[in-house]
Amino acid sequence: MKILAPLSLLNYLKIAAEHHMIVKDGRVLELLHEVDTIVFDKTGTLTHEQPYVMDIHVCGSYTATELLRFAAAAESRQSHPIANAIRQEAERCQLALPPLDDAAYEVGYGLKVAIGGQVIRVGSERFMAKEGIDVSPGLMAAQEHCHSHGYVLVYVAIDGTMGGAIELHPTIRPEVKEMIAALRQRQLDLYIVSGDHEQPTRQLAQELGIESYVAQTLPEQKAELIAQLQDEGKSVCFIGDGINDAIALKTAHVSVSLNGASTVALDTAQVLFTDGTLNPLLNLFELADDVEANMRRHVVCQFSSTPFVLIGVYAWQFRFFETLLLHTVGGFAGIANSLSPVFDKKWKASANGSGS
């Protein structure tokens, strides 16, 4: 068992690597078989950090194209996810962006830039109020809709007059809904934990059909939630990718992160999905099931020959050679069992399908 069990595990670790999973701690494949609760971080894990432009609401005499062009030009020097989303939408529409004459950025509020003699302000409702620009009645319905559903609304004002707003929605990873459905079939309890506000977190949970969620959490509160679940007797797998997830990743029985996550998360997590998606998650659980079954077969292989050896010695007067030969059969069976993962058609077919 000291030889055969590690040999089996090495083969399963090799299979994991071929399926975009780097398992840094071999015990994970044993612990996963006991996991009954999965806690997902929201932003960057279930959703991409960058949202997408869903709609452009205009008021006054400006068109949606002009509004997007002004906003993209104002955000041209910014690197945050909202700025990237606005610029990508402008690129998709093949808009030529005018150069900036002047720009000023107020952290947490918005941008004030000069373009061709016009003053363009892009930012939050709070920024517009600070600049003395009121939300026009035509935008009130869009504002209420976005607030009720947890969407982001970026306001654009031209020369001190409200021009409209850009509505951005979170981008859910395309594989998430199918994966959540498969995890439910395994009878797992699912949680969403987020530092975001209550409304967008609840909206995502409802869309994915996850009943349990916790919003507006600090990094240490995420770890406290996991510790609380574990104190209740649950075995928890936490999946996160941010700096603020490091404590929770360390606290959970099993921790998973994605390629492209923060360095702290990559260093702390026990499992890394190298393709940057959640697609390998189901394979990880199936692999853990196979490891458990393989180890059980090892026990059977090593001890099944013992009754036959004893019967042979006392009933059929086996000599040393026959006894040793019969006992060795169990050893060869164990070796075959250790090598069986390599020849498992399920994993070979899956690896070929993923282009490994």
Results as ranks from 00 to 15, higher is better:
335 I>Q: 10
248 A>W: 00
347 W>F: 15
188 L>Q: 01
159 D>F: 09
336 A>D: 05
56 I>M: 07
112 K>G: 12
250 K>D: 03
241 D>Q: 06
298 H>T: 10
156 V>A: 06
132 G>W: 00
212 S>M: 13
16 A>T: 08
284 L>E: 01
154 V>C: 07
341 P>E: 02
125 E>R: 12
174 P>E: 03
221 Q>D: 07
87 R>Y: 06
132 G>M: 00
18 E>M: 10
327 H>Y: 15
95 L>P: 00
188 L>G: 01
218 L>S: 08
220 E>Q: 05
229 L>D: 01
200 P>C: 14
79 S>P: 04
323 T>I: 06
318 F>P: 13
146 C>V: 14
336 A>E: 12
223 A>F: 01
98 P>L: 03
111 L>C: 10
106 E>H: 12
2 K>D: 08
314 Y>S: 06
61 S>K: 08
276 G>L: 03
243 I>A: 02
346 K>E: 12
140 M>Q: 05
329 V>E: 01
130 K>F: 15
54 M>H: 14
322 E>T: 05
241 D>N: 04
148 S>H: 12
63 T>M: 07
294 N>R: 13
25 D>V: 09
105 Y>K: 01
238 F>G: 01
353 G>E: 08
152 V>Y: 10
74 A>K: 01
311 I>H: 15
156 V>G: 06
67 L>Y: 07
344 D>Q: 05
320 F>Y: 14
346 K>Q: 13
282 L>N: 11
245 D>G: 02
292 E>H: 06
258 L>K: 13
52 Y>M: 13
183 L>K: 11
115 I>H: 03
14 K>N: 04
46 L>M: 15
35 V>G: 04
301 C>Y: 14
65 T>L: 13
133 I>K: 11
206 Q>D: 14
52 Y>N: 01
17 A>H: 08
296 R>M: 11
240 G>T: 04
205 A>Q: 13
8 S>N: 09
218 L>N: 02
160 G>P: 02
190 L>Y: 06
215 A>I: 00
286 E>S: 06
235 S>F: 05
295 M>R: 07
221 Q>R: 01
244 N>Q: 15
41 D>I: 09
187 Q>F: 07
283 N>R: 10
152 V>F: 05
285 F>K: 13
92 R>C: 15
177 K>Y: 12
276 G>C: 06
148 S>Y: 14
322 E>K: 05
51 P>C: 04
210 I>N: 07
176 V>Y: 05
32 L>Q: 03
265 A>H: 00
85 A>M: 02
272 L>V: 10
233 G>D: 15
241 D>S: 09
87 R>C: 08
24 K>A: 07
210 I>M: 15
67 L>M: 09
226 I>H: 01
112 K>Y: 14
16 A>V: 03
156 V>N: 02
257 S>C: 12
8 S>E: 07
27 R>T: 15
81 P>G: 02
136 S>P: 05
